[in-house]
Simulated scan of single mutants.
Amino acid sequence: KQIFDAQTGSAQPHIYPKHIGNLLIPNISEDSIKNFNITITPIFKKIFQNKNENNKLKAIKNSLLIKYFN
């Protein structure tokens, strides 16, 4: 919210490093960071797997289209 509120410009809001330089960063415990990483790691692994699968399917689609139209 603080970053969003720091945006300037009316046509296309943007933010500069000086706007976020003074933001306070909460002190997060090492356990909280570890728990967060444990939670999100499987999600990012699944995203990576899905991207790879999409690329394979796209290649198969393109190959089939070429064979169909030739």
Rank of each mutant, 00 (worst) to 15 (best):
K1E: 05
K1A: 13
D5N: 03
D5W: 00
A6R: 03
A6P: 00
A6L: 01
Q7I: 01
Q7E: 03
S10K: 07
A11T: 08
Q12P: 00
P13Q: 08
P13E: 04
I15A: 06
P17K: 07
H19Y: 11
H19C: 09
I20C: 12
G21S: 10
G21T: 01
G21R: 12
N22Y: 13
N22W: 08
L23I: 14
L24G: 11
I25M: 11
I25W: 07
I25Q: 09
N27V: 05
N27S: 12
I28Y: 07
I28C: 02
D31N: 09
I33E: 04
K34W: 06
F36W: 11
F36T: 03
F36D: 02
N37G: 00
N37F: 01
I40Q: 13
F44E: 15
K45S: 15
K45E: 15
K45D: 15
K46T: 14
Q49D: 10
Q49F: 10
Q49L: 10
N50A: 13
K51P: 00
N52D: 05
N52P: 00
N52Y: 03
E53V: 09
N54D: 13
N54G: 06
N54E: 14
N55C: 01
I60T: 15
K61M: 12
K61H: 11
K61L: 14
L64E: 11
L64D: 10
L64R: 13
I66N: 08
I66W: 04
K67Y: 09
N70I: 09
